[in-house]
């Protein structure tokens, strides 16, 4: 095993995602505390210019391959697994993102390494990883053991600015024997524009599964109108087709930063928190006093939303 900390760089349409900078910032701390080397692993085709943003790392390993021109789960798994096998890093940091969820487990099995998922904290000596489980209701500290491990990091866990350093470190090019692929990238489908851009709203009244039925939506919409804002929601509301995808806040939805985020019947799962935790003022209403959303809210109201909404509406 080497003393390297690998960070798998995530990029889409020429942009490096924030999660990469979060991991670079954290990885730098771990490398500093353990006398290790921070290595940014960049895969792509003609993407070497991105190395100029990876200055937090001590070194970039860059693989240029036409089969990596677009993100491909199979190609990435093969390439990252091969690089891990060749370099034996002591920790591999992967985003717990849509892409990372393809990669981390594959690298773990291919290299017989432990995999610790949903990391929201990592001790600087690398000895303990904290995972956020049960929808944010429990934390679990794991010890990775001594021979390397794969850790997937929940976006928003570490400050991205700490890892945003301009200037390219030494770039080492590597090849990865990707071989034949049975999965081919076809196209990116952009989201349809909605009637309202929730990222531009100053006031969001956001509903979650606690609203119970689409028949109860008008009461939340009326409140939003009275407050001069718009309605947004958690994922289950969209999966139930009660509101359009463009209203979804969170990991696979939109990131919002309104002046007021009023969360009604939303539990505060990490995937939701990712999208709204930077709002100026967060007020959460939930019947469950232990709902994780109260960890992130500025004000908490333990109340049935069906009593709270009319009470608030009537005072506006």
């Amino acid at each position: 095993m080497s003393n390297q900390i690998f960070v798998i760089v995530e990029h889409l349409k020429g942009n490096i995602e924030d999660i990469t900078f979060e991991m670079l910032g954290k990885g730098k701390e771990i490398a500093g505390a353990t006398g290790g080397e921070l290595v940014a692993v960049l895969l792509g085709s003609g993407a070497d210019d991105l190395a100029g943003q990876l200055g937090a790392a001590g070194k970039v390993i860059y693989v240029d391959d036409p089969q990596l021109a677009e993100y491909n789960p199979q190609a990435y798994c093969k390439a990252v697994s091969a690089l891990v096998a060749a370099n034996q890093p002591k920790m591999v940091l992967v985003g717990n993102t849509s892409m990372g969820m393809d990669i981390a487990g594959g690298v773990s099995v291919a290299n017989n390494l432990p995999f610790i998922a949903y990391a929201s904290g990592i001790a600087n000596d690398g000895s303990t990883v904290t995972s956020s489980l049960y929808g944010g209701k429990m934390n679990v500290d794991s010890s990775p053991g001594g021979d390397g491990c794969v850790v997937s990091v929940i976006a928003g866990s570490f400050p991205a600015d700490a890892g945003r350093v301009e200037g390219s470190p030494a770039v080492e090019t590597a090849s990865a024997d990707i071989g034949d692929l049975s999965i081919r990238f076809k196209q990116l489908i952009e989201p349809e524009g909605g009637d309202v851009d929730i990222t531009a709203q100053e006031i969001l009244v956001s509903v979650g599964r606690g609203i119970q039925s689409d028949e109860n939506l008008p009461m939340a919409e009326e409140l939003a109108a009275k407050l001069g804002g718009a309605i947004s929601c958690s994922r289950p509301i969209v999966d139930s087709k009660w509101l359009a995808k463009t209203r979804q806040v969170g990991k696979s939805g939109l990131k919002v930063k309104p002046k007021l985020y009023l969360a009604l019947g939303i539990s505060g799962a990490p995937e939701h928190i990712e999208g709204m935790k930077d709002a100026d003022l967060i007020i959460a209403v939930n019947t469950d006093p232990k709902a994780p959303i109260f960890d992130y809210a500025h004000y908490g109201v333990v109340q049935d939303l069906f009593d709270f909404i009319p009470a608030l509406s009537s005072k506006l």
């Binding site: 889409l12 995602e17 989201p191 995808k245 463009t246 979804q248 696979s252 939805g253 990131k255």
Partner: peptide, 12 residues
Amino acid sequence: EYGGGMVAEFEA
């Protein structure tokens, strides 16, 4: 599904 409601289509 990626972030922001963006979807990648693959053929496998």
